[in-house]
């Protein structure tokens, strides 16, 4: 079976992004970029399924500008067999990305599609579910464990209040949570080799799907910053301070 993994290029998770002075958008010029952490978990899981002999081919797909080649190179270096870039310079929102991914799924016919549960830039967490709906596939979101049994997949999901396990018929869409696995480090020789591997590039317009942005950005702003308070010297001082706030330590 083949596994398709979607990877997104995002601002590195350690970076605190700035906004442009006119508040029109975030300013990510020259900022360090990398693969979305959850997508790295998605890819790692696909690679493990291949190493266990369950999967035969792992295809990494990214949607975005030509700059997204770097996360595809990273994916190839981690061990993906092939990489596809669906190229577009437009502001692509989750629904448009899901439609493009659907087109590539239709072409590649993978048995399993794994995505990260959310991208750490827009924090939307929608693309996987949207893709599953467009394909009429079952979905297993926020996955922390996967097990393939014949034509089915058992998915353990992290939900509010615990976990739940679903059985899905393949083909299915999975979105990865951080605890699904610990992604491997990319070794330098692998990175060098990945540079020589081809990346298939397809212009997004070729798929003929509606990519219009449905959400118009009006402005961005910095949230109100919480002010740092004071340092206290002892437990007693801390308790005395807390008692000055009505009701906080009421009844204790």
């Amino acid at each position: 079976m083949n596994i398709l993994v979607a990877v997104k290029r995002v601002v590195d998770y350690n970076i605190k992004v700035r906004i442009k002075p006119d508040g029109s958008d975030v300013d990510i010029d020259g900022v360090k970029m990398g693969i979305n952490p959850f997508d790295e978990n998605a890819l790692e899981e696909a690679l493990r399924l291949k190493e266990e002999g369950i999967a035969t081919e792992v295809i990494a797909v990214s949607v975005g500008t030509s700059a997204s080649q770097d996360v595809l190179r990273h994916s190839l270096a981690m061990g993906a067999d092939r990489a596809i870039l669906i190229e577009s310079n437009a502001d692509l929102q989750p629904l448009a990305v899901a439609k493009l991914l659907k087109s590539i799924v239709t072409r590649e016919q993978p048995s399993l599609i794994i995505l990260g549960k959310q991208a750490i830039d827009d924090d939307a967490g929608q693309t996987g579910q949207m893709l599953a709906a467009l394909l009429d596939y079952p979905q297993g979101t926020f996955a922390s464990a996967l097990e393939i049994e014949g034509n089915e997949i058992l998915v353990t999901r992290e939900v509010d209040g615990g976990t739940e396990t679903l059985t899905l018929a393949l083909p299915a869409v999975i979105t990865a949570d951080l605890r699904l696995n610990e992604p491997r480090f990319v070794k330098l020789p692998n990175l060098m080799m990945a540079r020589k591997k081809p990346i298939e590039t397809i212009n997004a317009a070729e798929f003929g799907v509606n990519l219009d942005a449905r959400l118009k950005l009006i402005q961005v702003a910095e949230p109100a910053v919480r002010k740092a308070g004071i340092k206290v010297g002892s437990v007693e001082e801390l308790i005395n301070k807390l008692r000055t706030h009505n009701g906080i330590l009421e009844g204790v």
Binding site: V11, K16, V17, I19, V26, Q93, P94, L95, I120, D121, D122, D123, A124, G125, Q126, R214, L215, K216, L217, I218, Q219, V220, A221, E222, P223
Partner: peptide, 29 residues
Amino acid sequence: AMISDVLEIKAENTYVRSIYAGNVLTTIQ
């Protein structure tokens, strides 16, 4: 489209939500 985790409803089709782990507030229509 879907608008996830809306912090404030500004107008009947305009919303404030946070992006980049809450480091930026964005107003979208």
